[in-house]
Design a binder for these strands. Sequence first.
DNA 1: CTTAGCTTGTCAGCTGACAAGCAAGGACCC
DNA 2: GGGTCCTTGCTTGTCAGCTGACAAGCTAAG
Lengths: 236, 236
Amino acid sequence: MTTPRPVGADDVQLGASSGAADLAVVNSQRARSELSSRRLLESAVELIAERGYERTTLVAIGERAGYSRGLVTDRFGSKEKLLWHLLEHHFVKWTEDSLYPDLAGLPAAAALNRAIERTRDNIRLAPTRIRAVYSILFESLVLVPGVRERVALMHREHRASTAAMIAAGIANGDVPATVDPEAMADAWVATFRGVAYQWLLDPETFQIDRALREMSTLFTPMLTAGPVGGTEADPS
Amino acid sequence: MTTPRPVGADDVQLGASSGAADLAVVNSQRARSELSSRRLLESAVELIAERGYERTTLVAIGERAGYSRGLVTDRFGSKEKLLWHLLEHHFVKWTEDSLYPDLAGLPAAAALNRAIERTRDNIRLAPTRIRAVYSILFESLVLVPGVRERVALMHREHRASTAAMIAAGIANGDVPATVDPEAMADAWVATFRGVAYQWLLDPETFQIDRALREMSTLFTPMLTAGPVGGTEADPS
DNA sequence: CTTAGCTTGTCAGCTGACAAGCAAGGACCC
DNA sequence: GGGTCCTTGCTTGTCAGCTGACAAGCTAAG
């Protein structure tokens, strides 16, 4: 038995598949374990995207990755630790390291539109990963309490930072003073999650691009201090 | 063994607890079975609201209702059939028989505000039942495929009827012609679901009343053909 | 030879389903 | 009205399938 040596946050670059290197058999032990860890994570993400976390079996993860059923436990310690790894790595880290910096300094309306664009790009580029993330977010409602609390905290922070952004916009006149920052942040995050929910629920029928566009149509005027109270109804 | 005799849709009026009758021991067999069915459904709803469907055990349902573990299967046939019963009874039936008629004939903006009010009332009056329903909606993403398809269908219909309502509003001038009915319906349903999600996720912190109010603030102007493009910014 | 990577054997806990059985209700007959 | 017997409501015994965890062991790297 190998001592459970949890994969560090930066051991693995999931999604950045190094392509041909997979076959150029570098048999160094370090390389082997990195490869297998990456494959395990990929399998896990795929399976979670397909059927959620609870219905995903360690056996299934191992087999799809081309290994045995025991490797996941050996690598990550337990199934739940794997979940935490995915949660922190794919969601929290992405939000904090990639999304937030990208929005920094933008006026509120522009920032929210940028967030929409980023989401659309992500869905186009890595739909499986996004599905897996959202799957976990929704499933967290009925998982181990700890996970739900973590996700709840993420959302609290997300609402808070959105509200802060809107409040800043009010302070320097970009956003109408009639807006309630916290309430608006509630609605913003809600719409985002609801769009994701419907997409997961019914990928074939629900047109997520249209829905994201509509979000922009809906929120932009509310966050824009129009020249004189225009609904932008008549740009002709 | 008793032949599995599934409870008919109108055998049981869940929630309409007849109060004192519980103790006024009417030992008629018919009365006994109605009482036990009602109690079983109540327990199931409570437990699903607390921990979701999959983590709810037949043993737990029976025990909480004051019966044995075997009764649920005997009454409903299987755990999954119980789920279907709740789904059709609590959600579909409520929407079609109670909500839709209530909105009929109202202008779009008024109808949507009425839907918000109804939701708020429901949450105040029967929070547990509402939590259970939403729990099932979100959990359906990772349940037996059949359930998910049913829920997806419900949402398709819900979007369609919302879009139709908006389109009708455009036709008779209540709603600005710039609005895209389908896209608006997408966003509307999305916001509703996202508000519910955050409420389930974090009941203590998320202020659902505020969020519902903000939904109104957000959608009402978009669905109202203002006198002359007013954002309703200044009602003073 | 030592250690790391990975596999396989094995086990225990849980859960839903089903069948057999018990006790109380209720209809029918006298 | 009271006794008999069938029916209904409910319980308990039991089982099989699944799954995550752990330990021992094999193979190849170093």
